[in-house]
Design a protein around this nucleic acid. Sequence first.
DNA 1: GCGAGCCTCCCCCGCACGGGGGAGACGATC
DNA 2: GATCGTCTCCCCCGTGCGGGGGAGGCTCGC
Lengths: 220, 220
Amino acid sequence: MPVTVLLVDDEPLVRAGLRAVLEAQPDIEVVGEAADGAAVIPLVRRLRPDVVAMDVRMPLLDGIEATRALLRTVDDPPRILVVTTFENDEYVYEALRAGADGFLLKRARPAEIVHAVRLIAEGESLLFPASVRQLAAEYGDAGGNRAARAVLERAQLTEREAEVLRLMARGLSNAEIATRLVVGTETVKSHVSSVLAKLGARDRTQAVIAAYESGFVAPG
Amino acid sequence: MPVTVLLVDDEPLVRAGLRAVLEAQPDIEVVGEAADGAAVIPLVRRLRPDVVAMDVRMPLLDGIEATRALLRTVDDPPRILVVTTFENDEYVYEALRAGADGFLLKRARPAEIVHAVRLIAEGESLLFPASVRQLAAEYGDAGGNRAARAVLERAQLTEREAEVLRLMARGLSNAEIATRLVVGTETVKSHVSSVLAKLGARDRTQAVIAAYESGFVAPG
DNA sequence: GCGAGCCTCCCCCGCACGGGGGAGACGATC
DNA sequence: GATCGTCTCCCCCGTGCGGGGGAGGCTCGC
């Protein structure tokens, strides 16, 4: 069964673009569109999409409020992928706090967009978009850590996972962490994988960066 | 030809211990001992050791001053390995600033001591002793970043290496860094290796940690 | 002119890492 | 009692990573 997607954006052009990109994939199906946040809830109830790709900045009801409303009022709500134009849009972080599962730049390449939808649909997070952070930093991002903070708030690491992340952030290898925690390396790998998935990090380096950026660990 | 080592420590017991550990190695030779910093310079001139393993806290002339004096007055000075009892000894960081090449805990296991001497002799740095940082953190290290700061001061990264480290600290892979810098991945690997060597880091994760701890990159 | 340092690229190679599965044990919750 | 989440451990497998070499071209300073 294909991944079903509902597009929510006030610009028809963007909706058309997303539709074209996504429908080119055999395993992704765009089941509906909405032009503003207010129309989302009834549509979700009727169409039951797996993923809602939602713009943040919209008239009437913005992406943040729409996200809150969705999660509050709909049973078994869809996964929410926030779409934004700007790499350092504080609305995005608000949306993540509200419960969105990931975010995506409109200028992303088609392959990235497709990848993001698939990941989100699989229940993964998409919270460490390196490209976003790079761009943000290049443009003098003064609040990049807001994103990371939102990440860890939403990450919901278990106690053990948090412990593992702390040790990763001290530079320990999986084997060293295993020794330290008196468990097998396979166990550590399992925890590390969970941490990476929850943070949306690709590798341990990115996870450690997220830990620093979020204040989960602090220099000094 | 073996690595020649001069031991400098005011405690005979420590000297004897280091000698026993080091001389057990076929490729390491202890060529002399000194009980305080003042005796070091003439001994170094006469014995020309590859490595001086030097205590920091000594009567008359401490390890910091002895290090400064050595580097100032001796041509082709030996590599200096600072030996310390305490994991968070600010004298050590002073010594690193003065020009020491690495530091070592007295409580380290023999294999680690041997390893440290060999590394130092080969011209490598030993500036990211994870064990030290771990212990320091466990004991409530409030100034652990002093060590890291000293590291980067001494690391003497080239412009390119610094650039690569910055990108590593943004979570980029070697391939991504290569694309960004418009060079080959082999080139990036070469720079990364240099960075790791200069920082005494074992892998990119540790390098990124050092970057954060030193303030080379900052969260937010 | 010549060397030193830097940047660039190349080779081989071992291994830790991370993805993708699964599975048993335990406690809490329903 | 059944279910869920967590923690634990296991398998296979591809590959990015890092160590170990080397080498050519460039600029700078002696």
